[in-house]
Design a protein around this nucleic acid. Structure first.
Length: 479
RNA sequence: CGAGGCGUAGCUCAGUUUGGUAGAGUGCCUGGUUUGGGACCAGGAUGCCGCAGGUUCAAGUCCUGUCGCCUCGACCA
């Protein structure tokens, strides 16, 4: 690895002083991204791309397990195709990029660079779905999409971002609803079991739902500073797109029928969620399941005879149970310790002459800084155990932060006061009217994050208007 | 898109008020000594001062424009 600025760590803004600045310091200094000359478009450097590849591998496996197949759709959408579904085009038109010229000639019909691919999938489904025997189709694609954002932040909002978008089509609405829920659960499991980020599962309000959807289910994560992050969405489309695109199939009863559809997506924003959930003043802390390097071997006094050789042997050996790397640079050990802590490597393995003599090494956890002297022949069991323990501790801390920052409001005054003085979720009852949702945004600066599946009953009336309450809603400020 | 801030060496920044030879720290390169929490010595290289105009004998510095980045708001994954 290239030599780094020695003052890297000192240069990171303390997170509680200025969380936004801390975040931008981290993404640059941990070599996750570089800015490019195109506004709002970031270079994903090897370290962040490796995280993305690990996430892809896990998620893709989960998609395959649930019977999905990968496909690839074109990146261009003709204007006429985009416009077929009214709500959809209204939602996306303001932020699409248009190609108006090609091969030196003005195009007869302009093409938009996909902001999402529902319309292309619909066009394709119309071609290939003719009978109930053709259903369901459970498709997914990994690609990038473009949305012409006004303001951008690395990972959280960039004009081009990487994602996966699942698009499925079913014979019945029951089946499509079940698919929507099933994939939301896949996302939730991925966040909690692999990224150590606890999530709330629920539904978006009419105001917040996806353009063209009947219902949008979501998982919401909470960042260290108490702001919410929409971590993944799963949409149920009903047969709305099928009508708009005239997709029909011959049913079991020999009548023409419209199929039911879903879509669901997760993006590179998730890397931002990892940073903002687990990071601390020393830098990143990566969940072991997606950390490009899970154990960094650091030879101590590596110039001494046999040290480097033994360190390489150990690295080779533990490579069987984890993703291991070795830092052979001629930086001092102290420098390496700080460097790999900043980059969020979950476990450090120190190996020096004294250890080699005794057939042991020192393992240091990034989350607790706890040091343990471990016999070399116990590494193959001890490393997986510690990686698991780190994951559990990360999850526990993230959940603790969320619980500490979750509040309840029974009156408007209470909600406004909480929104002013605290940063986090505010649970409050809601009547279901968009007018009240907009009023809360106006008066308290909060938006509805999600209507949780696990409902509670705080009181009988809407926190805003006093009419009978329909749902408990989590309110908050979001990224 | 509104408000604010910033563009000078790889990085962090000083220099701009009051125009007068381009600076520091750190990193980088070479050689040597070091190595269990950010080591040290000696030598060396590095700049379209974001870009374009203008004012001036003279512009990093003043004026006009422009591009980009960051933060906060409004909008969105």
């Amino acid at each position: 690895m290239a030599q780094q600025d020695k003052k890297l760590v000192e240069a990171i803004t303390p997170m509680d002083e200025d969380f936004a600045q801390w975040y931008t310091d981290i993404v640059k200094k941990a070599e996750l991204i570089d800015y490019s000359s195109v506004r709002g478009c970031c270079v994903l450097r090897p370290y962040s791309y490796a995280i993305w590849e690990n996430m892809q591998k896990i998620l893709d496996g989960m998609f395959k397990e649930t019977g999905h197949q990968n496909v690839y759709m074109p990146m261009f959408i003709p204007e006429s195709l985009l416009q077929k579904e009214k709500d959809h085009v209204e939602g996306f038109a303001p932020e699409v990029a248009w190609v108006t010229e090609g091969g030196g000639k003005k195009l007869e019909e302009r093409l938009c660079v996909r902001p999402t691919s529902e319309t292309l999938f619909c066009e394709h489904y119309k071609n290939i779905v003719h009978s109930y025997r053709d259903l369901p189709k459970l498709y997914n694609q990994w690609c990038s999409v473009v949305r012409w954002e006004k303001t951008t932040r690395p990972f959280l909002r960039t004009m081009e971002f990487l994602w996966q978008e699942g698009h499925t089509i079913h014979e019945t609405s029951e089946e499509a609803v079940a698919e929507t829920e099933r994939m939301l659960n896949v996302y939730a499991r991925f966040y909690e079991e692999f990224l150590a980020i606890p999530v709330l599962k629920g539904r978006k309000t009419e105001k917040e739902k996806f353009a063209g959807a009947v219902a949008t289910y979501c998982i919401e994560a909470m960042m260290h500073d108490g702001k919410a992050l929409q971590a993944g969405t799963s949409h149920y489309f009903g047969d709305g797109f099928a009508h708009a695109f005239d997709i029909q199939f011959q049913g079991r009863d020999n009548t023409p029928q419209y199929p039911f559809q879903t879509s669901w997506g997760m993006t590179t924003r998730t890397i931002g969620a990892i940073i903002m959930t687990h990071g601390d003043d020393s830098g990143l802390l990566l969940p072991p399941a997606v950390a490009p390097v899970q154990v960094m071997v650091i030879p101590v006094a590596q110039h001494k005879a046999g040290v480097l050789e033994e360190a390489r042997r150990v690295r080779e050996k533990i490579g069987a149970v984890c993703r291991a790397d070795i830092d052979e640079s001629d930086n001092s050990p102290g420098w390496k310790f700080a460097e790999h802590e900043m980059r969020g490597v979950p476990l450090r393995l120190e190996l020096g002459p004294r250890d080699i003599e005794k057939g042991q090494c020192v393992l240091v956890r990034r989350d607790t800084r706890e040091k343990a002297i471990v016999p070399l022949d116990a590494l193959e069991t001890e490393i997986p155990r510690l990686l698991g323990a780190i994951h559990d501790e990360m999850f526990r801390r993230a959940k603790e932060n969320r619980e500490r920052r979750t509040f309840e409001a029974r009156t408007l005054e209470e909600l406004i006061r909480l929104a002013e003085t605290e940063s986090g979720y505010i649970k409050a009852m809601w009547c279901g009217d968009t007018a009240c949702e907009e009023a809360l945004k106006e008066k308290a600066g909060v938006t509805s994050r999600c209507i949780p599946f696990e409902q509670e009953h705080l009181c009988d009336t809407c926190v805003c208007c006093g009419k009978p309450a329909k749902h408990l809603v989590y309110w908050g400020k979001a990224y």
